[in-house]
Amino acid sequence: MSRAARLALLAALLATPLPAPAQVVSEAPEEARVRELARTLRCPVCQSESILESRAGTAQEMMVLLREMVAAGQGDTEIAEFFRTRYGDFVMLAPPREGAGRIIWALPLILVLLGAGVFAAGLRRRGPARTPADTVTGKPLDAARLREMEP
């Protein structure tokens, strides 16, 4: 490639308009709320995905329904209730904080408290009992035995 050709190529490259850094997409103001709600609803077909992520037809129809309900100004609990009466608690990705669902939510806390209790009990038992024990019988040594063992 001659020098002139190289220069021409460089000039051509520099003259090429750069693409815009990011596309600006305007969306309906309710769309953020729709997404937030959609993330909490389980797709009944694919089961481990929310209806926001799912490409299943049923999930997409649920998204359409959700958009209509949000546009109609329905409240979060009203919308959740709509899907729960149709698909049961199953449709909520997070278990409900009532009935048997309460146990699930409380379980981690119960386990942590139980663990802390066990740990504290262990510390207390081990703490002051530091008298040397007989290696054979496991009994703590009394003063007389200790004196006997002195060299």
């Binding site: 009944p44 049923t58 129809e61 649920m62």
Partner: peptide
């Protein structure tokens, strides 16, 4: 065709 009634019935498959 939209599956809207299916949602009312809680149909998943």
């Amino acid at each position: 065709p939209s599956g809207r009634l299916g949602i009312d019935f809680g149909v998943y498959g």
